[in-house]
Design a protein around this nucleic acid. Sequence first.
DNA 1: GTGAAAGCGCTAACAT
DNA 2: ATGTTAGCGCTTTCAC
Lengths: 325, 325
Amino acid sequence: MVTIKDVAKYAGVSSATASRALRDIGYVRPETKQRVLDAVNALGYIADQAAQQLKSGVSNIVGIIVPDIKNYFYNIVVSLLTQRLKSDGKTVMLTYSNENSELERECFYTLFAAKVCAIIFTPVTDRNYDLVRKTTDNGIHITQLYRRVYTDINAVVFDDEDSAYIGAKHLFEAGCRRPLLIGVSYYNLRSDRVFPNRTTGFLRAVRENQITEYRYFEHTLLETSDPAFEQLFLDFQPDGVISGNNTFTLELLELMRKYGLRCPEDVKIITFDDIDWISHLQLTAIHQPIDAFVDALYPIIFYQEPPRLECIKSVLVRRKSTSAV
Amino acid sequence: MVTIKDVAKYAGVSSATASRALRDIGYVRPETKQRVLDAVNALGYIADQAAQQLKSGVSNIVGIIVPDIKNYFYNIVVSLLTQRLKSDGKTVMLTYSNENSELERECFYTLFAAKVCAIIFTPVTDRNYDLVRKTTDNGIHITQLYRRVYTDINAVVFDDEDSAYIGAKHLFEAGCRRPLLIGVSYYNLRSDRVFPNRTTGFLRAVRENQITEYRYFEHTLLETSDPAFEQLFLDFQPDGVISGNNTFTLELLELMRKYGLRCPEDVKIITFDDIDWISHLQLTAIHQPIDAFVDALYPIIFYQEPPRLECIKSVLVRRKSTSAV
DNA sequence: GTGAAAGCGCTAACAT
DNA sequence: ATGTTAGCGCTTTCAC
């Protein structure tokens, strides 16, 4: 392995000088600096981050905890974030909580051991507050993504509550009188402890519009189909559905095909997640601007006080699936 | 920060004993070990990986270089891999090359600096061999994913060449006589330097079946639509298309809608990437078993000699888009 | 402007 | 079975 000592020896200077030259810090004669740079090139030296970090005490690793493997949204955010952090000389350590609170704990331990300078995560429970505390107590910045569970910690979310409200109103305007909401059920967390909550917005719209026949179903994440949902769908026979994500929507579409129901004639559809195939199928969608989301997130990653809540507005994109018949 | 010295002091032992106790190494009295464990619990000690690594010289970070943000396939592989590596006490450092050879170089530097013990990457060029060499010379294991560019390095790929061949034959059996293949064009890499190459398999099928009217188009990745492709599609008027990935397929479907072409009546379709919405649209697809892929990858991550080439077979899933009219 | 030396937190010889 | 000590590669006073 090539160390800074090798570089120093090759350049005929001390390792202290080499270190200064490489980081443009302190006084180094331009000529000396050039010799060091030449040595680096000749030897192919790359500084050992672990050693740098150990000595300097500063880390440039940002930890991310992703709750769900397959979620398109998270994957995009992770990649956008990774690229932007790189331009600030930071690297990303990736972990998966898989919607499991025990795994989330392990993720925290892993990131802690790696001495990350910040953690960006989507909480899957409200029972890991001890670790959240410990993290901030150790000067590690922390931000919640997508769901706000801990109110004293930074959070960046989409305003899904409002989107569900707007979506429901749009359904009513399109003539629906038997709306169904497919919301989200968490494994380790009561929905009403999470902001935003799609169901809240939906119920508000229902009340304001004096809709008497309505249902909501809280669908677990990770599972691609749920018999209980099929049962409710058949029993209730909704004329309009707001689907909490694209996976739920696919399940809904399969059900409708199975029972010969057409969209928008029999059932109108509004779906969260305006991704490529959703738009191809001409489904009315709640478009969540990911770029704006990351833009809002980026500046607060390293600022904790006072805790910020960034709430990104989504946009309803009207397409055939909610048009009049 | 809580260090091992704090733990040692709390437990009334030396830091060496504490270290041994924590790693179940060497001789430690059970009673002593328990005292150390209690101290860890009481103080909330988590070992500093950077320091461990610096001293022991062994790293447990695996680096991944992902070429494309949006690619569903990579995202799934990354997450499956991350989870399996965790069970072996390894963590994942994530970087993105974005199909750019200069960025790929930077990724290597980043992972090098982090002293990863292995690199798993999808090469975007054949011009970074110097870094590949340097990596292996430093005892860092390295494996290519999805594309084999360097023949002396481990690689795990799907047999896309054969899949394209089988797909083309299936099109001919369904009556197609004007097939079009949408293959992949790399930015920094000639397609014929990559194994597998979809075009090769396609051309073999064309030859064997004496098809005289055919075309292939090598579509760039990352871009969601290409005017040159639209032009070729209009000029040639294929009666069957094999699409190299789901993004290309969406572009194709949009074109067909724009020009009022129906599937399978006017154009039959076979697509790579058997993902959820592809199956919902009842498109015949080349199903790539990701689990088998990861299963093949996992055992060779840390074995380099001799270089292995794992070629995973895909399965053609027949659906309506290639049925007889 | 440059070098010598201490030390970050941890582990591995070696001593006891 | 446990403690002492050296040192991994780097940065950072502090001399010069």
